[in-house]
C-alpha cells in the first residue's frame, strides 16, 4: 500500500506541473504579440485602447445618470416610459433599425472596385467612429456585406453600380482624415485601382435610412 506522504508528494508535484503549463500557455498567447510590436505600433495601440476606454467611461457616466433618473421616477411612482422611449430611439438609431440624421461625410467611388475594397472603406469609417453608414440608400447594419468582383458588387442582395456613394454620420474631419491619411485605405485603393477616383466631402446634414432587414435573432436566444 502507498504511503500518504508519497501520494501527497505526487499530488503536489502534479498540481505545480498543471499550474506551470497554464502559466506557460497564457504567457505565450497573451504577450507574444505585444512583445513583437515596434515602439510606433505600441504607441498606436495605446492610443486606440485609450480612446475606447474614454468612450466606455463616457458610456458608464451616461448609464449612471440614466439609472439615477429612472430610480427617482420609480420612487415618485411615475412610469419610466419617457426614459424607455429615449433609450429605445437611441439604440434603434445606433443599430440601424431607425433612420438617423446628422453631420458626416460622403464618399464617391467612380470606377469599378470589388466588394472587399468597399469593405476596407467601411472598416476604416467604423474605426474612425462613424455612427451610421449607408451605401447608396442601403443602411449598413450588422450582417450587411459588400461582396462580389469588380462591376458586380452586391450589398444586401442589391447590385451597386458605379459611381458608388457611401455616406457616414460622424465627426467629418476625423472620418475624412482617417480615410485619406498617408497609407490609409484610399491610398491603398489608389495603388490597387489606378483608374478609380475616390473623393471625400463633408456633409452638413444627411439622413441615413432605416434598414429594411430584420435584425432580431431567430435562432439565438438570450443567454441567462
Amino acid at each position: 500500500m502507498r504511503r500518504p506522504s508519497s501520494l501527497l508528494a505526487v499530488a503536489s508535484v502534479l498540481f505545480l506541473l498543471g499550474f506551470l503549463v497554464v502559466v506557460q500557455l497564457r504567457t505565450q498567447s497573451a504577450d507574444q504579440g505585444l512583445a513583437a510590436l515596434s515602439v510606433q505600433d505600441l504607441t498606436e495601440l495605446v492610443a486606440n485602447v485609450t480612446a475606447r476606454n474614454n468612450e466606455l467611461r463616457d458610456e458608464v457616466g451616461k448609464l449612471e445618470q440614466q439609472r439615477s433618473a429612472i430610480a427617482q421616477a420609480v420612487e415618485r411612482g411615475d412610469t419610466s416610459a419617457l426614459q424607455i422611449r429615449s433609450d429605445l430611439n437611441r439604440i434603434q438609431g445606433w443599430s440601424g433599425a431607425a433612420a438617423v440624421t446628422g453631420t458626416g461625410v460622403q464618399i464617391n467611388i467612380v470606377g469599378s472596385v470589388p466588394g472587399d475594397a468597399i469593405e476596407l472603406l467601411l472598416n476604416e469609417l467604423r474605426n474612425a467612429g462613424a455612427e451610421g453608414i449607408a451605401i447608396a440608400d442601403i443602411r449598413v447594419v450588422a450582417g450587411v456585406v459588400a461582396s462580389g468582383p469588380e462591376g458586380e458588387v452586391t450589398v444586401a442582395g442589391r447590385l451597386v453600380a458605379s459611381p458608388v456613394v457611401l455616406t457616414a454620420i460622424g465627426q467629418s474631419q476625423t472620418l475624412a482624415g482617417s480615410l485619406t491619411r498617408a497609407g490609409g485605405p484610399i491610398a491603398q485603393l489608389a495603388a490597387r485601382y489606378p483608374d478609380v477616383t475616390i473623393t471625400v466631402a463633408a456633409v452638413d446634414r444627411i439622413t441615413l435610412p432605416a434598414t429594411e432587414r430584420s435584425l432580431a435573432p431567430v435562432l439565438g436566444h438570450p443567454r441567462l
Partner: peptide, 10 residues
C-alpha cells in the same frame, strides 16, 4: 458605447 454624438433619430 451606443451613444449618437453627431446624429439623432428623426
Amino acid at each position: 458605447s451606443v451613444t449618437l454624438r453627431y446624429g439623432f433619430v428623426e
